[in-house]
């Protein structure tokens, strides 16, 4: 059995380059160019990543669980 994994996605069209995500979770998000991007393909479940999705002012970050259900940002 493989460990459950999440995926994160950044919508580069929405991102305003605040640097909040890359500042809070540098291993998961990267901001080199004009828009942030996911620095990893998959990650172990981590509440802090949901926090980052909630904090993104642009609503540009989405988090999906292993089943492909969108779990972040939280409503």
């Amino acid at each position: 059995m493989t460990a459950p994994t999440w995926t994160v996605h950044v919508d580069s069209g929405l991102c305003m380059g605040s640097g909040i995500c890359a500042g809070a979770k540098p291993g998961v998000f990267r901001l080199d160019g004009p828009a942030a991007e996911a620095a990893v393909d998959q990650l172990a479940p981590d509440e802090a990543v949901l926090d980052v999705a909630d904090m993104c002012p642009a609503g540009a970050i989405t988090v999906h669980d292993a089943e492909g259900t969108e779990i972040g940002p939280r409503p």
């Binding site: 929405l14 802090a48 909630d54 904090m55 002012p57 609503g59």
Partner: peptide, 18 residues
């Protein structure tokens, strides 16, 4: 972070672009 995150998460949703 993580103290900063804890506070900011609570209030961030009121200030998103949407």
């Amino acid at each position: 972070p993580p103290d900063h995150t804890r506070l900011r998460v609570l209030i961030a949703s009121a200030f998103t672009v949407r």
